[in-house]
Structures are given as structure tokens and as C-alpha cells.
């Protein structure tokens, strides 16, 4: 029965293996000590973004957080403009700010979804537009300097780096969260909200909790992104939305809710990164960026269709 619960992982696992082999052949430097350290650094924001939207997807109602990218961008530019430029650079303060800011946004989003009762995807769509604009207002073009200790992450020469510890901490948080009754409530709510409501689950708190978890991971993702680029970039985060959703869907988390976990999302994100590695090993010249765009798009469509085939006998969602 364990195999049943983990069956959604076969596709991303297979994908990671195939792409891993391709990467090993095409770009063997990826699998050296320095290569892995760099890979970890580059892939961390995407991995954490994919992890962040997982609990929201599990919570159901077709909830995909489109605003995740601009949110990560928002935390990034505000760390640089509001904190760093005002001399607030203490790691504890910056960490606390990143996580609290991301959580605050997620609470706002959750409140809209719960109390105004609008569809999560529309709420997050509006959120995307708002934050995208706000980010540009705060910082009109890439610039500024991240706190020094954070910027130093960007060298990416050590495997045992803060980025690795952040990822491990994120996994640990998820592992603990998964063992709580709350996680069970969120799964039940995502699978069938009416069953959850009528059997006494506090669906308001459960939805808030799912978004709160998303906020924590989004904050961590923003720290990793800031470490990676060492400055503020108002648009860098936006591209993460589509990539994170692709990773999530590739990882077998159902957008219909109730099913999935971060293992899939992480594998999905790793697969996305490997696609990028394999593609850059070819000399596409001017079109390499377009190639990535084309492939990411195709992968997203492919992932959705695979999910459709593997979960074919589904009862209609209400």
C-alpha cells in the first residue's frame, strides 16, 4: 500500500534519472564537488519555490499560487532596499524579516480566499499583478547590494554551505509538519472539503496553516535567491512562478487537491534544473534561451497530461 501512496513519484524519479544521466554525459562537471555546490545554489530558489506551493495545492480548490514568484522577488528587493540600505543586516533580523514578510502575504491571500470566497487562482493572479508592480516601484531596475554574509553565499564553491543547511532545514520542517494532525486535516480538506467540514475539521485554520507553510518556504526561497544574485532584482522572481508550478505538477502533486508531497516537488524542480543543464551543454547560441522556454512549456503540458492519464478514474470535482 505504501507503493500506492508513492506511485505518483515514478514519473519525476524516472525523469530525474534520465536527465541525470544525460547531464553526466553532456556536462560531467556538474557532478564534481564544485559543480554540485554550484548546482545546489542555482537550483535552491526553484526547489524551495516548488516546495512552497505544495501545501497550497494539497489544500485543494484548484489552488495554485501564481503569486509565488513575485512574492519571492518582493522579499528579495525589500531585503536589499529596505533592510540592507538602512544598515539592517544582522542574519537573525534578515531571516526573521524574510519569513515573516512572506507569511504575512500568504495570510493576506488566504484571508481573501477564505472570507471573500474567491477562487484561489484568481486571488493569486491578482496578487501576481500587484506584487509585480510593487516590486518595480520599490526597485525599478536590478541593483543594490545584499547583506555581505548573504551575498557571500553566491560564490557557491562549498557544498556544505548555508544553502544546503536551509534546504535541509526546510525538509526537516516539512517532515515534522507532515506528522502533525494538521497535515492530515489539510489533506482531507483538499481531497473533499465538505467531508472535512462536516466531520468537524476547522477548515479555516487548516487553509491558513497551508498558506503559512507556503510563506515559510517562500521566505527561505527568497533568501536563497538573494544569496544567489547578491543584489535586488524586481523581475527575477516572476519567472519562478511558471517553473515552480511545472515542478509541482511534474512531481505528481494533484492540482485538484488532497494528493502529493514535497518529495515530488523537489524531484520535479531537480528535473527542471537538469533540463537547463543539459540544454546549456549544447551550443545553441542565440536561441538557447528560447529553447529553454520551449522545453519548459512543453514539460508543463506533458506533466499535466501525464497527471491526467495516471489519475484517470477520478470523480468530478465539485
Amino acid at each position: 500500500m505504501l507503493s500506492n501512496r508513492l506511485s505518483h513519484l515514478w514519473v519525476p524519479l524516472g525523469l530525474v534519472l534520465i536527465l541525470g544521466i544525460m547531464a553526466a554525459v553532456r556536462a560531467p562537471q556538474t557532478f564534481t564537488y564544485v559543480g554540485l555546490a554550484g548546482a545546489l545554489l542555482v537550483a535552491a530558489p526553484l526547489i524551495l519555490a516548488a516546495v512552497a506551493i505544495t501545501p497550497i495545492a494539497i489544500a485543494g480548490r484548484g489552488g495554485v499560487d501564481l503569486s509565488i514568484g513575485p512574492l519571492i522577488g518582493f522579499v528579495n528587493v525589500t531585503i536589499v532596499v529596505w533592510l540592507s540600505e538602512n544598515g539592517i543586516t544582522h542574519p537573525i533580523l534578515v531571516f526573521a524579516y524574510a519569513i515573516l514578510a512572506a507569511c504575512a502575504w500568504q495570510m493576506l491571500l488566504a484571508a481573501f480566499i477564505i472570507f471573500v470566497r474567491i477562487s484561489p487562482i484568481i486571488a493569486s493572479l491578482a496578487g501576481f499583478m500587484i506584487l509585480q508592480g510593487v516590486n518595480l516601484v520599490i526597485l525599478s531596475r536590478p541593483g543594490g547590494v545584499a547583506p555581505e554574509w548573504l551575498g557571500n553565499w553566491g560564490w557557491g564553491t562549498e557544498l556544505l554551505s548555508p544553502v544546503l543547511y536551509i534546504l535541509l532545514a526546510a525538509f526537516a520542517i516539512w517532515f515534522l509538519f507532515q506528522r502533525t494532525a494538521m497535515f492530515q486535516h489539510i489533506r482531507l480538506m483538499g481531497a473533499d472539503e465538505r467531508t472535512a467540514y462536516t466531520s468537524g475539521v476547522d477548515i479555516i485554520k487548516a487553509r491558513f496553516a497551508a498558506h503559512l507553510m507556503a510563506g515559510v518556504f517562500a521566505g527561505l526561497a527568497a533568501l536563497c535567491l538573494t544569496g544567489l544574485i547578491g543584489s535586488g532584482d524586481p523581475t527575477q522572481g516572476n519567472t519562478l512562478t511558471l517553473q515552480a508550478i511545472t515542478a509541482l505538477v511534474l512531481g505528481g502533486t494533484s492540482l485538484a487537491g488532497g494528493k502529493g508531497g514535497i518529495t515530488g516537488s523537489v524531484l520535479g524542480a531537480v528535473a527542471m534544473y537538469l533540463v537547463f543543464v543539459v540544454l546549456s551543454s549544447f551550443n545553441f547560441g542565440a536561441i538557447s534561451g528560447f529553447m529553454t522556454q520551449l522545453l519548459y512549456g512543453l514539460m508543463l503540458v506533458f506533466a499535466l497530461l501525464v497527471a491526467l492519464v495516471t489519475t484517470a478514474p477520478r470523480t468530478r470535482a465539485a
Binding site: L242, L255, A256, F290, L294, G297, L300, L304, L308
Partner: peptide, 26 residues
């Protein structure tokens, strides 16, 4: 493509759009 996954049509069309624009640019 989206008929059977109408709830996710938004995501699917986003993916198709990305592929289309990538292809056109190539």
C-alpha cells in the same frame, strides 16, 4: 488538451503559450 483537465486549463494554456513563443523565436 485542456478539455479533460478544465480546472487546470489556465496552467495548461500557460505551458502551451510558453512553448509557442519559444518555438516562434527559434
Amino acid at each position: 488538451l485542456s478539455y479533460k483537465i478544465q480546472g487546470q486549463a489556465l496552467i495548461l494554456t500557460l505551458g502551451v503559450g510558453f512553448a509557442v513563443v519559444g518555438g516562434a523565436q527559434i
